[in-house]
Design a protein around this nucleic acid. Sequence first.
DNA 1: TGGATATACTCACTCAGTGAGTATATCCAA
DNA 2: TTGGATATACTCACTGAGTGAGTATATCCA
Lengths: 182, 182
Amino acid sequence: MTKATSELSPRYVVMGFLYIYPMHGYDLHKHLEANLHEVWRISQSQTYNILKYLKKEGLVTATLQQIEKRPDRELLTLTDSGKIEFEAWLFAPTPSSSRAIRVEFITRLFFASNLSEHLCSHLIQEQANALRIHLEGLYARLNTIPRDQIFNRMGLELRIEQLKSVLSWVENAMEYFVEGIT
Amino acid sequence: MTKATSELSPRYVVMGFLYIYPMHGYDLHKHLEANLHEVWRISQSQTYNILKYLKKEGLVTATLQQIEKRPDRELLTLTDSGKIEFEAWLFAPTPSSSRAIRVEFITRLFFASNLSEHLCSHLIQEQANALRIHLEGLYARLNTIPRDQIFNRMGLELRIEQLKSVLSWVENAMEYFVEGIT
DNA sequence: TGGATATACTCACTCAGTGAGTATATCCAA
DNA sequence: TTGGATATACTCACTGAGTGAGTATATCCA
């Protein structure tokens, strides 16, 4: 799928919930609200929009449930190719932008925590490494921007500051999982 | 204009360049690339898209220049209402999200630096205050999220960390303007 | 018994953003 | 001198994120 999906697509959260078990669009949206409302703000209709194109792409199938007199009601299931796509996303490091870490990486941890704590710790390590490498690149780029390009320098320097604070958060993220012990 | 323009609309940078003086869409895009490529990444066609709806909204007017045999070529001018909208945006604090500060606030400083250094310092103060107030709100909200909502807490705590580092950057931003003295 | 709330989904829309394409003018190097 | 790169200037058709209002039925409970 050499599809140029925009960085930070909401498709994977949706797929993630269906990865756990099949459900209705309605429930899916409720789960989103309950578990990740500080991370994603996806309206109900937007949830249905996403499901629509996932169906079109064959990542999700809908089976109609006919319950006497009630209309529609589709039970949504992640297809095999849907599962593959989701797993690929889950295991690959999130692009190194502050926002992507806050939204996508936390979402990956959310789904990974359903699988194993060890996986979480692994994802955290990998993400921290990716961030360190990316930061190196940004420092190098900063050196190529002439002194008088004040606002380009501002943009890049602020970006670097943000990423530094994101990195240190990621490095300590394992604390969330051992917290219960305290 | 109770228009619900999405937070972080690219319309104001475009208006900002036309605020300085009228030019072609082509030049406008070149200026963007030259001065703010670390801040905004707006493609040429996207620049024209923006100009299109600004024209439709009466914020920009286009006067056709007929130069013997060459086609099209529109000189774009900011209208009075365009100027008013731009100034309103320039003087009002940017919404307190990390990305908005990195993109919109730096853009505001860019245009403000064309007007006066005193204005820059004023905008920086105001923005820092707005950020402090916003952070208070986030801390309060964090206290309302139960301990077991791990991922919602993660999202909010990371957001707070990012905003803290953004705030300290803003507080020191005046350094960019006195730099030449060193 | 009727009004609030929960379940479940649709539609029409705007706005951000991309990629490829069109057309002419100018410069400069073999 | 000519033809190929580069600069000028703009258009079009598209995808994808996101919103707001609307539809329809079922259930609860006061």
